[in-house]
Simulated assay, not measured.
Amino acid sequence: MRAIKKVRLVIEQNPQEQTAQIFSRLILSLVEEVDFSMKDLYLLDSPDFQLAMDILQEWRLDRYYMGKAKTFDMAQQALSLAKSKK
């Protein structure tokens, strides 16, 4: 399974969890080509950190991968949900 799909599953399963929020911000920063705070990656445990590295590698190699649209939507929903709960 590609890293982008793994991240989508993490976000779908618990969109308010810190890991899902970090992945959501990472995905949105890649889509929107805006800055992402690298220090957030250090909040991830080792397997999730490696998954973030895999995302960066996949994104660089295949920017127009069709599954990213679904992950972008899920990431945006997760961040909106978290903001509405605050």
Rank of each mutant, 00 (worst) to 15 (best):
R25T: 01
F72R: 09
Q18F: 00
D40F: 10
S37C: 03
S46H: 10
P47D: 05
D45R: 06
F36C: 07
I4W: 04
K6T: 15
K68M: 06
W59H: 13
S80K: 06
M1N: 03
S46P: 01
F49E: 02
L41F: 09
A75V: 10
S29I: 04
R63H: 06
K6N: 12
A82K: 12
E58M: 08
D45I: 05
Q18Y: 00
S84Y: 05
L30C: 07
E33I: 00
R60S: 05
W59R: 11
K85F: 12
K83H: 11
K6Y: 06
I11W: 03
V7S: 06
I4V: 09
E17M: 01
R2S: 06
T19R: 12
K68E: 01
S80P: 00
F72W: 07
L43R: 12
R60F: 02
R60A: 01
R2M: 06
V31R: 07
A75R: 10
I55T: 04
R25W: 01
W59Y: 13
M1Q: 04
A3N: 06
S29F: 05
Q76Y: 07
Q13W: 03
R63S: 07
D40Q: 15
D62Q: 13
P47I: 05
D35S: 15
Y42H: 08
F49N: 01
L81W: 02
M74Y: 08
L56A: 06
D40K: 14
G67T: 03
K5L: 12
K6V: 12
Y64W: 07
Q16K: 02
L41W: 10
D54E: 15
L79V: 11
K86I: 12
R25H: 04
D73Y: 13
F72P: 00
S80C: 00
S84T: 08
I4S: 11
D40N: 12
M53E: 12
L79D: 11
D62N: 15
V7F: 05
S84W: 04
I11Y: 02
